[in-house]
């Protein structure tokens, strides 16, 4: 990619550097460096730089400074060589024709973490990673990770699914999420993430949904202290690279990226669970009302139509994912 070209020039100008040409890959991350995804990015960076003896540099630009997920994807897909790699939510590819990845964000697909990781290490998962490349989008996935399950949280106390009825819940504009909230009897409400804290505080919305760690990091518990662990979707993430950057690498360098990806993926699995448990303990200590969901069936049942219409086209593939549990 660009990075490669850029540092070649850089090398010609900075004399006295005797190693062979250096490559810098710009890696866009929406979350801050100390988030699960951020830590995963730095684990990947360190491993790549270690395995390549510093020949491949990963320039992690975290906290969304290079743009939100869609901006980053537009840059990468539109041939903008300013970003070589990025971490995205698996469902972000949906609006770019990544139809298989969309299956991962269908509500109540993964029953637990193990289920997801069984999938992530399967051949099917590798097939999903290559889907955008094969569709001619010009990017390919390198590896998977997760940010934990996403749960609803509300301003008013809540006991179970029945209490969601009539609540205004903020979700992203993604059609599946909107349909799911409607199926649960609540009304999906559009509020930008920027205004979410205030919207919860003033009561514009009654609740929202995020992974536990984000719920804590954004202080949402201060204004919406009821967290119901319904785990509707798993925050599956993918790290992608542009074909252009990929093709500019030698086979050996590509292998280094793959190996570092495998390492980062395992690292992600470990810290995701740890961080989440720790966050949950801290939230409980702060007096957050954490509600366990013992029987997920009514939730699943409510979303039955949403699930089947979202998976219609790839029913067989979807069944394969379900069967991995």
């Amino acid at each position: 990619g660009c990075g490669g070209q850029q540092s070649q020039e850089g090398k010609q100008e900075s004399e006295g550097n005797s190693t062979s040409e250096e490559i810098t890959l710009v890696y866009a991350e929406v979350n801050p460096p100390d988030s699960i995804a951020g830590k995963t990015a730095f684990a990947f960076k360190d491993k790549v730089e270690e395995l390549s003896n510093g020949q491949i540099k990963i320039d992690v630009q975290a906290s969304g400074v290079l743009g939100a997920e869609n901006d980053v994807l537009d840059t990468m897909l539109g041939g903008g060589k300013t970003i070589d790699m990025a971490r995205i939510s698996a469902f972000a590819l949906t609006s770019y024709g990544g139809e298989k990845s969309m299956l991962l964000s269908v509500p109540y697909t993964f029953v637990n973490r193990e289920h997801f990781w069984k999938f992530a290490n399967s051949d099917l998962a590798s097939e999903f990673l290559l889907e955008p490349h094969e569709n001619g989008k010009g990017v390919r996935g390198l590896f998977y990770g997760e940010e934990g399950f996403r749960h609803f949280f509300t301003v008013k106390p809540i006991k179970g699914i029945e209490d969601l009825k009539g609540m205004k819940l903020r979700v992203s504009a993604d059609p599946i999420m909107t349909a799911m909230v409607e199926a649960l009897g609540a009304s999906p409400t559009v509020v930008s993430f920027n205004e979410l804290y205030s919207a919860l505080q003033t009561g514009v919305v009654d609740g929202a949904e995020q992974p536990i760690v984000n719920y804590k990091a954004n202080s949402f518990y201060e204004v919406a202290p009821n967290l119901i662990l319904d785990g509707h979707t798993l925050g599956a993430i993918q790290v992608i690279i542009t074909d252009e950057a990929w093709d500019s690498l030698t086979e050996e360098q590509q292998n280094i990226l793959m190996e570092a990806g495998k390492y980062a993926s395992e690292y992600n699995r470990k810290i995701s669970e740890e961080t989440e448990n720790q966050a949950l303990d801290e939230l409980k200590a702060k007096g957050v009302n954490v509600i366990e969901v013992n029987d997920i069936t009514p939730w699943k049942e409510a979303c039955k139509d949403v699930i089947s219409s979202a998976t219609e086209k790839y029913a067989e593939l979807y069944q394969q994912i379900l069967d991995m549990q």
Partner: peptide, 19 residues
């Protein structure tokens, strides 16, 4: 040596801010 598409992309992004 970066693509000029960055200009297009950032112009739209700059104005596409909800607040």
């Amino acid at each position: 040596g970066l693509p000029l598409t960055t200009i297009v992309q950032q112009m739209v992004k700059g104005i596409s801010s909800y607040s």
